[in-house]
Structure formats: C-alpha cells, structure tokens
C-alpha cells in the first residue's frame, strides 16, 4: 500500500466527510421534525392531511432514495421551472426519506404508551395538548430510541448515493481518485475508514443510550 498517496488524499477525503456529515445530520434533524409532524397527523387522524401522510409514508418507504433524488434534482425543476441546489436537494431528499421512517418509529412509540397514562393525565386536568407534551410524547420517544438510532444509521449509510446528484461526497472522491491514479486499494481503505468515522460513533452511542434507557433513567 502506498501510504504517501493516502496521506496526500487525506484532505480531499476529509473535506468530503464534512460534506457528508453536514448533509447527513441536517437531513436527519429534518427527518425527525417531519417524522414528528406526520406522526401527530396520523395519531390524531386529522382529515385530508391523514390520507396525504399515509400516501407519503408508503411512497417514500417503497422507493429507493437514489431515484427519489433523481426525481427531485433532475425532473421536478424541469416541470416546476425552479432549480434546486444539489446540497439542499440532498438534505431535503434525506429528510423526506427519513421522515417516512421516523414517523413510523414515533407512531409505534405512541401506540406503546399505556392508555391509562393518558386517562390519568386527563383526570389531573390536563388538556389533550398538555397530555401529549408532558406525558405521552416523552414516553413514546424513549420507547422508540432503539428504532431512531437504527434509522439514523440507515440514513447515514444512505448518504452514500449523494454523488449521483454530483455532490462531492466520499464516494465521489474515491471514484474520482481511482479513475485518476488507479490507487484503488488506498482509496478503498480510506473510504472504509471515513465511513467508520461517520457511522461507528452513532452505532456505539446507540448501544450506550439504549442500555441506559432500559436500565437507568426510568421505564418499568
């Protein structure tokens, strides 16, 4: 292995990693917001929005991100007449994909909270909104932590297709360098290392948080 070349490539990979991290985490935050809103809509079965949400969830869960991105980046602007910045498209695409998955996680968490919790909060004089905010949602979130972490890892892995809409992410850099210099092994090793840097901490954190929630803070 040519370590000299690897050192030379480091800055390029590092830059690409920041791009992946930026798009990935903003997308993930977006997906949590979308997921929460959609889960609330489906929980309260708000007419019209409910049907739209169900359609959105099914559509995004049953099609590949790559094609969603192609559609958003190449096709939609053609018809709508407004272009979209590749980076914004990546974030939005990831947030929409993740939103469909996060909504399902929130939903199953909400369903897992005992109905008696709602009743006793109501009988303490709370309004429906207060019951959701102070009693049901915090419990639903902690019941879904495992599934959130799985979704976050899934979404971080999905960021690997961003190069398809010409974003200079890790895959893009690796492919580019392999094409230019044929240092295939070196580039692939760097690629693996950088994805480990991105995903491994989340994976480890997930295990820790899960253990803590299960045995420590509360729950019964």
């Amino acid at each position: 292995m040519d370590f000299g070349a690897m050192v030379d490539y480091l800055p390029l990979f590092e830059q690409a990693m920041w791009l992946t991290l930026r798009i990935g985490w903003i997308g993930i935050l977006g997906s949590l917001v979308i997921g929460l809103v959609v889960a609330m809509i489906t929980h309260y079965k708000i007419p019209v929005l409910y049907q739209i949400s169900l359609f959105y969830i099914e559509l995004y869960r049953n099609t590949p991100l790559l094609i969603q991105l192609f559609f958003m980046y190449f096709a939609l602007p053609r018809v709508l007449g407004v272009g979209i910045d590749a980076e914004a498209c990546g974030m939005l695409g990831l947030a929409l994909l993740g939103g469909a998955y996060m909504a399902e996680s929130f939903r199953s968490g909400l369903e897992a909270v005992e109905p008696i919790q709602t009743e006793s909060a109501l009988s303490l004089g709370m309004t429906k909104a207060q019951v959701m905010r102070y009693v049901v949602l915090p419990q639903a979130v902690s019941l879904s932590v495992q599934s959130f972490v799985a979704n976050i890892i899934f979404l971080l892995k999905e960021t690997s297709v961003f190069s398809a809409i010409s974003l200079m992410d890790l895959m893009f850099v690796a492919k580019d360098l392999i094409g230019l210099y044929y240092n295939t092994t070196e580039c692939l090793v760097l690629l693996v290392i950088f994805y480990l840097i991105i995903i491994l901490p989340v994976s480890i954190l997930g295990t820790v948080v899960e253990r803590k929630l299960r045995y420590g803070a509360f729950g019964s």
């Binding site: 008696i116 004089g125 207060q130 102070y134 729950g219």
Partner: peptide, 30 residues
C-alpha cells in the same frame, strides 16, 4: 377535571418523572 381527583386501580404514575415531579407536574403546567 381539576376539581376531581381520580385514582385508578393500576398504579399509573408517569414513569419518566421522579416522584416529586409526578406530584407537581399538574399544579405547574395546568
């Protein structure tokens, strides 16, 4: 409902709150 204090058969404390938080949640937010 604030004028009616209800206690159910199952011990329905809020598992994510401490004991004192369970008791003070409603006076504070409601």
């Amino acid at each position: 409902r604030q004028k009616l204090g209800m206690v159910f058969q199952s011990y329905d404390l809020f598992p994510h709150k401490t004991i004192i938080e369970n008791v003070t949640l409603s006076p504070i937010v409601v």
